[in-house]
Design a protein around this nucleic acid. Structure first.
Length: 181
DNA sequence: TAGGCCATCTGGTCCT
DNA sequence: AGGACCAGATGGCCTA
């Protein structure tokens, strides 16, 4: 590559038109550096895009992992991202609530009859997921307090299929309003 | 066809 | 300086 100012050295007597030639060369050099800068920026952008794509793929993989540990629905139904997050939120809430109630109830008193009977299908276990019941949390998430995981406000997701997944939960958690005694 | 969901690109900001 | 993270824009695909 030729240095941009190579021809300008020497001073002395310049032939007529030399300044114009200098300007031309300087312009070409500038165009070259701009093109170089452009390709540099471009390649940085392409690399950044690549990293971003990768990042999102990892995020999606993590989301898939989360889906895989949630109670499954019919195989062909895939929770959307927002549904997965909301469901996970409520699932965790339900599990911790189950744990809490179980700890409350241990050891069971001799006359204990509380959580013995499983919820009748289609009634209790399903109904506590519905937002219609005031004391019943639903599968839809709320960003509010963890102690009240769901309200009807942002209840965007409470698929009927999900009810089945929760039917297996202990009656104590299936009916949050219920206590040990 | 409208609306929802998603992947990708992009520029800005923050962090190391 | 370069990478990670984020949010907005855009276009494609699918479904009611």
């Amino acid at each position: 590559m030729m240095p941009a100012e190579a021809a300008s050295s020497g001073g002395g007597s310049e032939p007529p038109g030399a300044p114009r030639e200098r300007r031309r060369r300087r312009g070409r050099a500038r165009a070259r550096t701009e093109a170089l800068l452009h390709t540099l920026k471009r390649s940085r952008r392409v690399k950044a895009n690549d990293r971003e794509r990768n990042r999102m793929h990892h995020l999606n993989a993590a989301l898939d992992e989360l889906r895989s540990v949630l109670p499954t629905f019919p195989d062909d139904t895939k929770l959307t991202k927002i549904e997965t997050l909301r469901f996970a939120y409520n699932y965790i809430w339900a599990l911790s609530e189950t744990l809490r109630l179980a700890e409350q109830c241990l050891p069971p008193p001799p006359t204990f009859r509380g959580a013995a009977a499983p919820p009748s299908p289609g009634s209790d276990a399903g109904s506590w997921l519905s937002s219609a019941s005031p004391s019943a949390p639903s599968l839809c998430a709320s960003a509010s307090a963890p102690s009240s995981p769901a309200t009807s406000e942002d209840c965007a997701y409470a698929p009927a299929e999900s009810l089945r997944a929760f039917r297996g939960l202990p009656a104590a958690s299936a009916a949050p309003g219920a206590s040990c005694r």
